[in-house]
Write a protein that binds this DNA or RNA. Structure first.
Lengths: 226, 226
DNA sequence: GGACTGCAGATTGTCGACCGTCGGCAACAG
DNA sequence: CTGTTGCCGACGGTCGACAATCTGCAGTCC
C-alpha cells in the first residue's frame, strides 16, 4: 500500500472551532479592525459565525490569557486598551526574552551562531521585501517575525510561547497608531545591525544592540506624533 | 455616610466558579496529589464538585495554557509529564526573567536596589523559617516565593505573569521527586548569596549568581537520585 | 429639586442533553 | 494465523435554554 494513489492524501485539518474563532478574532484585533474598548458580545459573535456561544466563550478566554481582551465579570469582554505603561512593559519583557535568547545562542558556540545569523538573514530578506512593497501592515508583521526567528533559534518552547503573546500585543500597538515611524532604510539597517552584533559573538554588544533597538521602538510608540 | 458602622464591610469575594476550580486543581497538581499522566475527565470532576461541566471546562482550559495539563482533541486532558528537557526549558526561562528583573532593578538606582534587598531579606526570613520547620512542601513554596519577590520588584506585570506560570511548573517538578536536595543550610546560604550579589550592584555578578543558582537547581532535578 | 428605590432590558454564567469522534475488542474473511 | 471490518462504551465538542447579575432609566418620596 506504500505506492498508491492515496499517497496524495494529506491529514486533513483538525482544528477545533474555538481555535479558529480565536485566531480570527486575534487577527482582527492585531490588524486594528476591532477598536480598543470595543465590546465583544458572545451572542453577537456566535450569531454571526453561525455557532453556539460555547466555542465563542472558549475562544474569548484564550484571548483573555493572551491579554488581547479584558474580561470583567458579568460584563463580558472588550478589546484591550494599551497605555504607554503597557507598551513599556511589553517591550521590556520582549527585551528580557530576546536578549536571553541571544545569549544562549552565543553560548551554543560558533555553530549555533552561524545557524542563527543564517535564519536571521532570511528573515531580513522577507522584511526587506515587505519594506520595498511599502505595506505598513506587512512591514510590522515581518518585523516581528524577524524577532521571533531570533527567539525560536534558542530552542526553548516556553520562551517562544511567551514571546508569541508579547509579539501579538506589540503588533496591535504598532498597527493601531498608523505611524510610519522610521523610514524603510532605517528599519533594514537597524535589523542588519542586530545580525552584525550577533556575529561579533560579544555578549554585551548583542544585549546592548537588542536593548537599544527595542527602547527606540517603544519610544516611538509612546511619544505621540502630535 | 462616611462614618458609619457599615465601614467594616469589605467588598466580598467575587471569584468565578471556574477560577476557584482552576486554583483547586492547580494546587493539587503542584502538591503532587495528581500523578503525571492521570486523566482528568470533565464529567467526573463536575460530578464531584456538584457543578456543571462548563465551568470545569473553563478551568481546565486555564490549566492548559499554564502548561500544567495537556489536552488532546477528543481525548480530554491529563496531568502533564515533565521530561528533563522540559525542566531545562523551565529553568532557562526562569533565568531569562529573573536576570532581566535583576538588571532592571540595578538600573533603577540605589533606591530600587535597597527596596529590592529589603523585600528579599524578608522573603529569606520566611524561607529560613520554613527550613527550620522542615516541611519540604513549605520549603519549596517559600523558595519560589523568594524568587517571585525578585521578579515582582521589577514592576512589570507581564514578567510577573510569565514567571507565575514557570513557578507553578517548577514547583510541580520539585514536589514530585521527593528529594531533599540541598541541606537546609545550603538553601539559605545560596539565597543569601543572591541578595549579596544584588547588593554589589554589579550587573555581571548578579546575572552570574542567578544563572548559577538556577543551573544547579535544574541539575539537581534532572539527575536522578538513583 | 435631589436622591434613593424599583423596574426593564440586555448580557453573562451555568446547566443538562445531544452529536461526533476516539480507542479497543470481537467477528470475520483471506 | 493475519489483517480487515464492524461494533461498542466512553469521552469531549457543541448546542439551546434557564438563572443570576449588571446598567440605565423612570418613578417616588422627602
Amino acid at each position: 500500500m506504500a505506492e498508491s494513489g492515496l499517497s496524495r492524501l494529506k491529514a486533513l485539518e483538525r482544528t477545533s472551532t474555538s481555535d479558529r474563532i480565536s485566531s480570527e478574532l486575534r487577527q482582527m484585533i492585531i490588524e486594528g479592525a476591532l477598536l480598543p474598548g470595543e465590546q465583544l458580545g458572545e451572542a453577537r459573535i456566535a450569531d454571526q459565525l453561525g455557532v453556539s456561544r460555547a466555542p465563542v466563550r472558549e475562544a474569548l478566554q484564550q484571548l483573555v490569557q493572551q491579554k488581547l481582551v479584558v474580561a470583567t465579570r458579568n460584563k463580558g469582554v472588550s478589546v484591550v486598551t494599551f497605555t504607554p505603561s503597557d507598551i513599556w512593559e511589553i517591550y521590556d519583557a520582549r527585551c528580557a526574552i530576546e536578549s536571553h535568547a541571544a545569549v544562549r545562542i552565543l553560548e551554543g558556540g560558533p555553530g549555533a551562531r552561524v545557524r542563527a545569523t543564517d535564519a536571521l538573514r532570511t528573515a531580513l530578506g522577507a522584511l526587506s521585501a515587505a519594506v520595498k512593497r511599502g505595506d505598513p501592515r506587512e512591514i510590522s508583521t515581518t518585523d516581528l517575525s524577524f524577532h521571533m526567528t531570533l527567539v525560536a533559534t534558542a530552542d526553548n518552547s516556553r520562551l517562544v510561547d511567551a514571546y508569541s503573546i508579547l509579539s501579538a500585543q506589540a503588533l496591535t500597538c504598532i498597527n493601531r497608531l498608523e505611524i510610519v515611524l522610521p523610514s524603510g532604510e532605517e528599519i533594514i539597517d537597524d535589523h542588519g545591525a542586530l545580525i552584525d552584533a550577533l556575529a561579533t559573538g560579544e555578549r554585551d554588544v548583542v544585549v546592548k544592540a537588542i536593548t537599544d533597538h527595542l527602547t527606540v521602538a517603544a519610544t516611538n510608540l509612546t511619544t505621540r506624533p502630535a
